[in-house]
Amino acid sequence: MLYRITVRNADGEKLEIVVEMSEDEVRALAEELRKAGYEVRVEPIPEGEEP
């Protein structure tokens, strides 16, 4: 499935990426980023919607 991941650092800089991963993989990635001090938001992209 496609997911949009938005990551912000302490300075407020934002990075937005689209990935194709399983829900478990995305959850693990988000958890690791949060542990590293980043603010993370994950949104699933519905099938048929443009990323």
Results as ranks from 00 to 15, higher is better:
I5K: 00
E43F: 05
A10F: 04
P44D: 04
D11P: 04
K35W: 03
P44Y: 06
A28H: 09
V7L: 14
L2A: 14
E47F: 11
Y38G: 01
G37H: 06
V19Q: 07
E31G: 06
I17E: 03
A28W: 03
E47M: 15
V7P: 00
E23A: 15
E25N: 10
M21I: 05
R34S: 11
I5Y: 00
E49M: 07
E47R: 10
V26S: 04
A10N: 15
I17V: 03
P51W: 01
S22Q: 05
P51E: 09
V26W: 02
N9T: 04
V7K: 03
V18N: 05
K14S: 13
D11Y: 07
G37Y: 15
V42L: 06
A36Q: 12
P46F: 14
E39Q: 12
T6K: 06
E50Q: 11
K14I: 13
D11V: 13
A28G: 07
Y3W: 04
A30T: 06
P44G: 11
Y3P: 00
K14R: 10
I45W: 15
D24W: 08
E32N: 12
R27H: 14
M21G: 09
R8H: 07
V26C: 09
E43L: 11
R27N: 09
R8I: 06
G37A: 02
Y38I: 03
R4S: 04
I5P: 00
L2D: 02
G12D: 03
E32D: 08
V42Y: 05
V7Q: 02
E23G: 10
V18F: 10
K35Q: 03
E20V: 10
P44S: 10
D11S: 15
D24Q: 09
G37D: 02
I45C: 06
Y3L: 02
S22C: 03
G37I: 00
R27V: 11
K35T: 06
E43K: 07
S22H: 08
V19C: 02
T6P: 00
P44Q: 12
E31K: 05
Y38P: 00
V40N: 00
A28Q: 12
E50N: 06
M21W: 06
A30I: 11
E43P: 00
E25V: 03
I45R: 05
Y38V: 06
R41A: 10
K14H: 08
V19I: 04
L15E: 10
G12V: 03
A10H: 10
L2R: 14
P44V: 12
A36N: 14
V26L: 05
A10R: 10
K35S: 03
E47P: 09
T6G: 02
P51A: 14
V26R: 01
R34W: 08
K14G: 04
